[in-house]
Design a protein around this nucleic acid. Sequence first.
DNA 1: TAACGCTGTGTAATAATATAACATATTTAA
DNA 2: TTAAATATGTTATATTATTACACAGCGTTA
Lengths: 130, 130
Amino acid sequence: MQKQETLSKNQKIILDLIEKSDQPLKAYSILFDVKKKGINAPLQVYRALDKLVEIGKIHKIESRNAFIACKNSKCQIAKATVFSICESCEDVTEIHDHKLSEHLRNFKDNKGMKYNKYNLEFFGLCKKCI
Amino acid sequence: MQKQETLSKNQKIILDLIEKSDQPLKAYSILFDVKKKGINAPLQVYRALDKLVEIGKIHKIESRNAFIACKNSKCQIAKATVFSICESCEDVTEIHDHKLSEHLRNFKDNKGMKYNKYNLEFFGLCKKCI
DNA sequence: TAACGCTGTGTAATAATATAACATATTTAA
DNA sequence: TTAAATATGTTATATTATTACACAGCGTTA
């Protein structure tokens, strides 16, 4: 089973919307916005979100219960995400830092655990809000 | 205003409970357990949790909406947390790795953002579940 | 082509997580 | 000893997410 290239109708509608926003969107705000396109129920939104997260088109910002598009064209980083979050204006940016990724990818604890995913969220104040 | 040494009644009850568990507890499971101690409403639980998180006695596992006690006696790491989470048995362990902490503490993005906190969650399979 | 598995859709109901608003009590500090 | 800050108690409600069920479309394969 290889990576799916074609998205379903609902998945497309919802990915479109998220990609048009440069900031994370919440599930019920997405629902509100796609009602005009015939998506009526939370579950329809959550199902599409689940799929889009799974294939790496979007990421969930766990501390905010919100979803942001992955700007990385290859979208192979669903399993290794780093974000910076401004606690004042709530601006969220995905961080791609080679050295940091390397470090995290290679991290080994002393419990013999096998990692296949990580998510890192930095919090602070962005330049505008300092 | 220095670090508060004395916790209020509700805060103590709830911290006690969380410290007795070596795994994260969810707010409503905490509520259920403390009803016999006279805590009746979600808000009473959430208020205590907020405070305990703020002073570093517990941490929130964001991806699980659950709370775990901080084992670090000094509890000064509320703002710099790393966890490993087994996706099979849901076992959660707080990680203290000097080199990793150093790396994360010193991380600078290229946006001039000032960080004061981070949270990192590793996912995978623990030794038992591999 | 018919039967099957897989993925997706639609809908209703409900579960789980979290906060707002208001009144009052207790502790702390000036 | 009074004012400010912190904590409590209660009701109601907002927000986030899932369960359960019925069915549609599509590609495989027997």
